[in-house]
Computed example of a mutant assay.
Amino acid sequence: MTVLSALVGWAAPNVISRKWTHHITTLLFFGFGLWSLWDGFTEEGEAEELAEVGAKLVGFLLSINL
């Protein structure tokens, strides 16, 4: 996947004009940023997952006598 991404990143400015490449990458950057923020603020069940990880961590720490 990394090699494919590098090839596309190298080839895209050569196939599409640099002006359009700049605009497309800017839109993608802001789009993924907003998507990440939305996902972070609307995530359901995160508290339950955090409690489960905490319980496992406490169990692990108790098992190694800390």
Score class of each variant (00 low, 15 high):
residue 43 E to A: 15
residue 61 L to D: 09
residue 39 D to G: 08
residue 51 A to Q: 13
residue 48 E to L: 13
residue 22 H to W: 14
residue 43 E to W: 08
residue 18 R to D: 03
residue 27 L to T: 08
residue 39 D to C: 04
residue 23 H to A: 11
residue 53 V to E: 09
residue 28 L to F: 11
residue 7 L to W: 04
residue 27 L to V: 14
residue 24 I to L: 08
residue 60 F to V: 03
residue 25 T to P: 15
residue 41 F to C: 02
residue 15 V to Q: 13
residue 16 I to E: 02
residue 54 G to R: 15
residue 49 E to F: 15
residue 6 A to D: 04
residue 27 L to A: 14
residue 50 L to S: 14
residue 17 S to M: 01
residue 61 L to K: 12
residue 24 I to F: 06
residue 52 E to A: 06
residue 31 G to S: 01
residue 20 W to N: 11
residue 13 P to M: 02
residue 28 L to W: 14
residue 36 S to A: 12
residue 36 S to Y: 08
residue 63 S to N: 09
residue 45 G to E: 15
residue 41 F to I: 03
residue 54 G to F: 15
residue 2 T to Q: 00
residue 34 L to V: 05
residue 23 H to M: 12
residue 24 I to N: 06
residue 13 P to Y: 09
residue 17 S to G: 13
residue 62 L to Y: 09
residue 27 L to C: 07
residue 23 H to R: 12
residue 14 N to T: 11
residue 10 W to Y: 12
residue 57 L to K: 05
residue 47 A to W: 13
residue 54 G to C: 09
residue 50 L to A: 14
residue 46 E to I: 12
residue 13 P to E: 00
residue 58 V to I: 11
residue 54 G to A: 15
residue 53 V to I: 15
residue 14 N to H: 06
residue 43 E to N: 11
residue 41 F to Y: 09
residue 37 L to V: 13
residue 33 G to K: 05
residue 65 N to H: 10
residue 37 L to Y: 02
residue 44 E to W: 04
residue 19 K to L: 01
residue 63 S to A: 05
residue 39 D to R: 15
residue 44 E to Q: 14
residue 15 V to E: 10
residue 31 G to H: 06
residue 37 L to R: 01
residue 37 L to K: 05
residue 15 V to R: 02
residue 32 F to R: 08
residue 4 L to N: 03
residue 55 A to Q: 15
residue 15 V to C: 02
residue 1 M to W: 10
residue 48 E to R: 14
residue 56 K to T: 01
residue 2 T to I: 00
residue 31 G to T: 10
residue 8 V to S: 01
residue 10 W to N: 03
residue 13 P to I: 07
residue 43 E to G: 13
residue 8 V to H: 03
residue 9 G to T: 00
residue 14 N to C: 02
residue 62 L to A: 15
residue 22 H to Q: 09
residue 58 V to Q: 12
residue 7 L to N: 06
residue 8 V to E: 09
residue 66 L to S: 11
residue 9 G to V: 02
residue 41 F to P: 01
residue 27 L to N: 08
residue 49 E to S: 09
residue 18 R to S: 08
residue 42 T to R: 00
residue 37 L to C: 10
residue 52 E to C: 07
residue 55 A to Y: 07
residue 30 F to A: 02
residue 34 L to A: 12
residue 22 H to A: 12
residue 35 W to T: 04
residue 17 S to Q: 07
residue 2 T to S: 00
residue 60 F to W: 11
residue 3 V to N: 09
residue 54 G to N: 14
residue 46 E to M: 15
residue 42 T to L: 00
residue 21 T to R: 03
residue 56 K to D: 05
residue 58 V to H: 14
residue 17 S to D: 08
residue 3 V to L: 10
residue 37 L to G: 14
residue 19 K to H: 13
residue 44 E to Y: 03
residue 34 L to K: 03
residue 12 A to H: 07
